[in-house]
Design a protein around this nucleic acid. Structure first.
Length: 587
RNA sequence: GCACUUGUAGCUCAAUUGGAUAGAGCACCUGACUACGGAUCAGGAGGUUAGGGGUUCGACUCCCUUCAAGUGCACCA
């Protein structure tokens, strides 16, 4: 639509002798209650024209109509100039822009971006909150890739600390040598089981101590189990062989379990970082900050940064005993990542409870003048709530990722079988389809919501396959494939001269795909893609209903509609891929 | 208490980043031709955009304020 912007600049210059920038012109899709496809908002021009909005719009409209052969007509409503673009233009768009394989393919922009996501703790299995994180991280990686970036997907695994020691200790004490093999439990679930056991036993000890007269706080500190766990952590840090060996064994169980969950979710990583390697990093940056005067040392030896002028507080970056805190580590890890990849941008997909932490971290790195500091972004997403409220592990309301995936597949199976949709499918093909549909429903349900908003996960609605859902879009794709399989496109060059309104609406919508990808990348929002793909599917279904394809009166029209269907199928397929969702050929 | 985020139809979400009469889905009601897939399509009903003020040609969007919800405010990660 650049040619309209350029011509509008020309119009304003010609009519009012004022130079405006194309970027300042507000161009939008014409609302469906008005005639036309493209609307120029002409309110701002009245400043120069010194005329009424209607008059101004008419003058610009006349100019554009004379200037551009593509503009077949216009109408003016207040400050809105609605342009009718000739059918020929849209038909050309389909053949010359949308159908070629280069459509919506953005050339590499030479920039690298790292997306860190997932970043699990290794003491328990993944739950619904992690699922949102993983889907967001994977999808935004795909989107940035489609927008021209070279993407590095990174996973910073929190593999050390008191939490994993708790699981280790409980297993040592109560495990009787259980392994994933002996129990046929997924490794992450087995380790999670012992984390829960630790918690139960620990609570029992606290209660005992309280009964003996200690306060809650004292009891929590003095319980033998927690002391043992802390001791184990110290032994780990000291490199005690037995502890390290157990740690390795149990972490490997967890990794085996995670790998399976990741595979089912369809997410992948290019680079793993482990906190056991990074937790001591950052001290050299503390020195650097002190030298540069960005940090200061207090009398007790602790090191701080004063961010009160930024509206933040004073923040500790190194303990008085010289050991690292979370912030120290993250400064060091940021440096490590940059040294590894020299990326232009670095995205952290982390929940919004860490908003403040990242605000501080980014401010520090900027103050230190670190390379890449301007490209830092915290993709902050809201918590996932259930209709009953928050997920609470204590109350057993945490939705386990593996259970959830299984349930989605099961529901897909029931629904599909009830509709008799899988006649003629092989057994593997059926299982594959149930997975595709179940995950399509789940992923779409989680990704259609703006990341920064809290997400209400209603299990009943998430398995809905009608309306604004993943399966609706998948169904539309299967329907397109079905039509295309019934007729061959014999002459790719055949075309028509006039469009039905549904055909025009569909082409207009398809042409927006490239700008939608850009908007999703700029806004770090898969939801933009999700809502767009739904629009396309909806418009296609309307077209499908109103315009007979195989029974079209004219061979040319039939060919044209097949081409249009093929184009729609491609956009739907590609859009869904950006969300990490597969689309089936049949369903 | 302070900071950040959010508040749109009964419910779940949109709204081209300041543009037209605020749109979809679910649920509810009504309809769809011997036809390409009815997981579809068309129609109805449903709104003081949490409340109040302001900025301007124009505000769900920006500013102020009140209210509500969530999160954060450790020499934890």
């Amino acid at each position: 639509m650049n040619f309209i912007l350029d011509a509008t600049v020309k119009a304003v210059k010609h009519l009012y002798d004022i130079d405006i920038a194309a970027a300042d012109i507000n161009l939008q899709e014409t609302r469906k209650e008005f005639e036309g496809q493209v609307t120029v908002v002409t309110f701002p021009f009245t400043k120069f024209s010194k005329k009424s909005p209607e008059q101004t719009g008419t003058e610009v409209g006349e100019f554009l109509k004379n200037e551009l052969s593509e503009v077949s007509g216009f109408n003016v409503v207040k400050g809105f100039l609605n342009l009718s673009i000739a059918d020929e233009y849209w038909i050309n768009q389909l053949y010359n822009e949308i159908l070629p394989d280069t459509f919506a393919v953005v050339p590499a922009n030479g920039q690298k971006v790292m997306v860190e996501y997932s970043s699990p703790n290794t003491n328990k299995p993944l739950h619904l909150g992690h699922v949102r994180n993983n889907l967001l991280g994977f999808s935004i990686s795909e989107i940035l890739g489609a927008a021209g970036y070279e993407v590095i997907k990174a996973n910073l695994v929190n593999d050390r600390g008191i939490h994993i020691c708790k699981s280790m200790l409980a297993w040592q004490k109560f495990g009787n040598g259980e392994t994933p093999e002996s129990t046929r439990l997924k490794g992450d679930h087995l380790v999670g089981k012992y984390y829960v056991i630790f918690d139960q036993e620990y609570k029992a000890q606290i209660k005992e101590l309280k009964d003996e007269g200690q306060t809650e706080e004292e009891a929590k500190k003095n319980a033998p189990l927690i002391k043992e766990a802390q001791e184990m952590l110290q032994q780990w840090e000291a490199g005690n062989e037995e502890v390290i060996s157990l740690w390795k064994t149990m972490n490997n169980w967890v990794y085996g379990g995670f790998a399976e969950t990741y595979r089912k979710l369809g997410v992948t990583f290019d680079k793993f970082y482990y906190e056991s390697d990074t937790y001591l990093l950052g001290k050299d940056i503390v020195d650097e900050g002190l030298a540069k005067g960005v940090f200061f040392r207090k009398d007790d030896g602790s090191v701080w940064i004063d961010l009160t002028s930024e509206g933040l507080d004073e923040k500790l970056v190194l303990r008085s005993d010289g050991t690292s805190v979370y912030m120290t580590q993250d400064m060091g890890t940021a440096q490590l990542k940059y040294n590894d990849f020299h990326m232009d941008k670095s995205i952290y997909v982390v929940g919004n409870e860490q908003d403040y932490h990242f605000k501080v971290l980014f401010t520090i790195l900027k103050k230190l003048g670190k390379d890449g500091a301007d490209g830092l972004f915290h993709l902050s997403y809201g918590m996932v709530d259930l209709p009953t409220g928050k997920m609470k592990s204590r109350e057993g309301t945490v939705v386990d990722a593996d259970d959830l995936i299984e349930k989605m597949e099961q529901t897909a199976k029931e629904q599909t079988e009830a509709m008799g949709k899988v006649d003629g499918f092989g057994e593997d093909e059926k299982q594959q389809l149930y997975h595709t549909i179940g995950m399509g429903a789940l992923k779409y349900f989680l990704l259609k919501v703006d990341p920064k908003k809290r997400l209400l996960f209603n299990p009943e609605e998430s398995v809905d396959f009608q309306g604004h859902t993943g399966p609706f879009i998948q169904y539309t794709h299967a329907r397109i494939r079905s039509v295309l399989s019934r007729a061959k496109i014999t002459n790719a060059d055949v075309t028509v001269s006039q469009l039905a309104p549904e055909e025009r609406d569909l082409i207009v919508s398809l042409t927006q795909f490239p700008e939608i990808i850009k908007a999703a990348a700029d806004g770090y929002s898969p939801a933009v893609i999700a809502n767009y793909v739904y629009e396309v599917a909806k418009i296609y279904n309307k077209f499908y209903h109103e315009c007979s394809i195989l029974q079209a009166d004219d061979e040319n029209v039939k060919e044209f509609r097949l081409q249009l269907s093929a184009a729609s199928g491609k956009v739907i397929n590609k859009g869904m891929k950006l969300l990490g969702i597969d689309v089936p050929e049949r369903m």
